[in-house]
Simulated scan of single mutants.
Amino acid sequence: MIVVPKHNIYFRLDDVETELDLKCKVLAWLSRPSCKGVSIYWQRRIRNLINEFLGTNFTHYEMEEIYTYLGNDVNRQKSIKFIESNYNLGVLKG
């Protein structure tokens, strides 16, 4: 899925089989550009896409936390726990 071609922001969908898989991918691969690496304009746009898709209202700071613990798909099990907890940020540090 190409999200922002201009900034090469994308992720692969070939291993996505469930909605949970897709949510994990969104957190893993869009958390970074939602808080760093691109202009503030694009950070906001990507954060808005994430929030709309997940039904959340994450701030810039919260996305930094999510990126720290879940970015680049470093801990898929923690991503699943985070999603299943209805996005309780306390799960990230636990």
Results as ranks from 00 to 15, higher is better:
E17T: 07
E19K: 11
L20A: 01
L20V: 05
L20R: 10
D21N: 07
D21C: 10
K23N: 12
C24I: 15
C24R: 13
C24P: 01
A28M: 00
A28N: 02
W29Q: 09
W29N: 13
S31M: 05
S31R: 02
R32N: 06
R32E: 05
R32D: 02
R32I: 00
S34K: 09
S34P: 03
S34M: 06
C35I: 05
K36N: 05
K36Q: 10
G37H: 13
G37A: 12
G37W: 10
G37V: 13
I40W: 12
I40T: 03
Y41M: 12
Y41P: 08
Q43Y: 04
R44Y: 11
R45C: 03
R45F: 00
R45N: 11
R45W: 00
I46S: 06
I46K: 07
I46M: 01
R47Y: 04
N48R: 05
I50M: 06
I50F: 06
N51M: 15
E52C: 09
E52M: 03
E52W: 07
E52H: 10
F53T: 15
F53G: 08
L54F: 12
T56F: 12
T59L: 06
Y61K: 11
Y61F: 06
Y61D: 11
Y61H: 03
E62C: 14
M63W: 14
E64G: 04
E64H: 06
I66P: 03
I66K: 06
Y67V: 00
T68V: 10
G71T: 05
N72A: 15
N72R: 15
D73C: 06
N75P: 10
R76W: 12
Q77S: 07
Q77D: 09
Q77N: 04
K78T: 00
K81E: 13
K81G: 01
F82G: 06
F82R: 03
F82T: 04
